[in-house]
Amino acid sequence: MKPAPFDYTRPASVSEAAAALAAGEGGAKLIAGGQSLGPMLNLRLVQPRLLVDVAGIEALHAFEETADALRIGAGITAANIEDQRIDTGAVPLLQRVAAGIAYRAVRNRGTIGGSLCHADPAADWVNLMPALGVRYELVGPSGRRTVAAADFMTAAFETVLAPDEVLETVVIPKPSAGARFGHVKIARKTGKFAMAIAVVVSDPGRGVFRALIGATHGRPLVVEEAASLLGSDGNTPDTARIGALLVEAGITEPAARQLHLTALRRAAAEAFSKALPS
């Protein structure tokens, strides 16, 4: 099982990467850690004519903590966050989610930006960032723009990223002191693709009560006014409404709906009934 032939270039900067993608006229594909793209290349499901390798670009490994946000370079790996080689303590969920991604050998290569741009509906970062109100900074030949995480992914494996754009920085707002989080992932086995992911964020200080239902067949469902879904106490879910939302998202099998509902209930219970896990 070998990939179809492709050519390979390793640009020195983000702007050179964007230029190489533009020169590729649709035949070029960006690769960072390659932990999702690699299997697809090997299966020949993806057959680019040129791979543009950005894994070593140091600007993508940048990290900065500002007064109100964490600015994480798209080339930071899950293992970097798991090991706290960058201090993401201001957003405690990040380390927990990072440590639960696939396997350590994959986390050592797989990047946060690569996962977000690959936009696999079952991926961990894909199903966390919209719940945290994250923004992405994209760089392309025509300049720079910012996109909200909730608007970035359009469908399974599809995003608003232009063919010559590169995700450079993931900007994660810091929650206020009283913020509570719940995160639940249901998978058949440790490291396998999630069957259901749910995130509940309650941050009264910032006026946020948000729920995310993830690992659907497409983009995650984000509910901004989650009180209407989970009750103002977070523990009186409107199961009929949640079920209708899931059906609308194409989750038609009752067993799958039940998994998503269970994940959401547990995430809400975690956010509302016990202390933030340290």
Partner: peptide, 22 residues
């Protein structure tokens, strides 16, 4: 391990050059 994917090294600048393509 360092920051970024293990094994990754910075590339050489190829500014202006059009990459070869299969």
């Amino acid at each position: 391990g360092r920051l970024g994917p293990v094994g990754a090294r910075p590339g050489a600048s190829v500014a202006g050059a059009r990459p070869a393509m299969t």
